[in-house]
Simulated assay, not measured.
Amino acid sequence: MTAASTDRPEPRPLTAADAAVLFHSLAGDEALIVAVSGGPDSVALLALLAEWAGQGRPRLVAVTVDHGLRPEAAREALMVGELCAGLGVEHRIKRWLGDKPQTALQEKARAARYALLAEEVRAFGATAIVTAHTADDQAETLLMRMAAGSGLAGLAGMAPRSAVSGIVLARPLLGIVKARLVATCQARGLSFASDPSNDDPRFTRIRWRRLLPELAEAGLSAGRLGQLAHRLARADEALDRLALRALAALPAGGGGGQRWFDFARLSQEPEEIVIRGLALVLAAAQDSDAEAEVPRRLARLEDCTQALIAAAREGRALRRTLGGFRLSLAGNGVLSLAREGRRSRGVHPATV
């Protein structure tokens, strides 16, 4: 009796036909910034995009951000430039200058990277930044957010296309595992760099990355986690639509820097819809798009909403603060919102 083979099939390189499907949503863009670090994910993305865009689709500019954190980074950026020259793609190098932070380095480096890429979006007149986020990145993001106690919006993970501060981010490879991109580079004879920080266990994401093989052995693969994120994104969108519909049916008004709506009627909806409705009202009341994008802690939003629901059902007045606003619930169930001072933000159990 022969034991069954447990060998897994070799990852299949991506083809031009695969790329045509993956990049279909980018066909309407006039010009794209491609974020290329020099790692296998972004090198494969660049090669596939260059081949695809050579058929008359969007103009491309590849941008490499040198964070100045490793001496090898400058050489790797030049390597990307050589690759771009061979592919006929314009290449630009952006440098993160100044002193580097001692804490939350990865998060701040990521913010700096997107700020520098956004500069090139405006300079080039591009319509989006294309990144090489993979199914593995999506799985890591989902696990990190689960551990942080995120709600549905967070667990939906990264979207294939989203906007940050008015800049569109396109992630066409979210459904592709990293191994296939490595295989793509190898099949095309493309050199790529390896960043040692991608294996540094000091960083939270890397610790989760190290768990992925063990989770995959138990059936929780990157593909399964990505599928879960997609399903949660679908549910999140549906619930947001229901919350908007519920809000549209409420008596509401405003003026003089204040807004009000019938919270008592909203509180008759399922709790999830009430929480989302309050979040949507607060986002709409912000002074700017950038301010509206600032995330609120879900636990605080839930705590505030639950207190308001209890008060509305008992006919009690209640005051709270949340997201920079004073929330005043009257005994008749009408909730008014007014901006609070800059000094105290969050939720405080101040009752009347």
Rank of each mutant, 00 (worst) to 15 (best):
L228K: 08
E72H: 10
P9Y: 06
A153R: 14
A115W: 01
A112Y: 08
L173F: 09
T127P: 02
L242Y: 00
E272H: 01
E10T: 12
L22I: 05
G257I: 01
G333M: 01
E340L: 02
G39M: 03
P172L: 02
R171D: 02
A115I: 00
A163Q: 13
I33Q: 04
A3D: 10
R231H: 09
S288N: 07
V164F: 12
F263H: 10
P295N: 02
A47T: 11
I275D: 09
T184Q: 03
G323K: 04
G256C: 10
Q286Y: 05
L327F: 11
P101L: 00
D7R: 15
S344M: 03
S42Q: 06
G86E: 11
A292E: 03
A285M: 13
E271T: 12
D240R: 15
G56F: 06
R343C: 10
A179H: 08
T134G: 07
E271S: 10
A126S: 07
D199A: 15
G346D: 13
D7W: 11
A156E: 12
A3K: 08
E107L: 15
V65I: 13
I33M: 02
Q106D: 13
A179Q: 14
V61K: 12
V34R: 06
T127K: 11
L190E: 06
L117E: 00
V36C: 12
A62T: 01
L22Y: 04
C185S: 08
P13H: 02
G157Q: 02
R313G: 14
Y114T: 08
P196A: 04
V182E: 11
G256Y: 04
V61E: 12
G166V: 01
P172D: 03
A311Y: 04
G28F: 00
R231E: 14
R300A: 15
R339G: 04
F124M: 11
G189Q: 10
R171V: 07
R122M: 07
F23D: 01
L173Y: 05
K100W: 02
R202S: 12
R113I: 09
A17Q: 13
L48F: 07
A156V: 01
F192S: 08
L26E: 09
L228A: 14
R161L: 13
A218V: 02
V274L: 14
R224P: 00
A311I: 03
L220A: 13
E293I: 08
A128G: 10
F23V: 06
A73R: 03
S221Y: 08
L250M: 08
D287L: 00
L225Y: 06
L190I: 10
A229Y: 09
P40I: 03
E82Q: 14
D136P: 06
K178G: 09
G255P: 11
P40N: 03
I129T: 06
I33R: 05
L298E: 12
F261I: 05
A279I: 01
E82A: 15
D287V: 03
I167L: 07
G323S: 11
R180T: 04
L26T: 10
L220M: 15
D199I: 05
L298F: 13
D287N: 04
G341E: 13
L282C: 01
V294F: 08
A3M: 07
M1A: 15
D195W: 07
R205H: 14
L45K: 02
A16R: 05
E90V: 10
A132G: 15
G86N: 08
Q186S: 11
A330V: 00
P201E: 14
L242I: 10
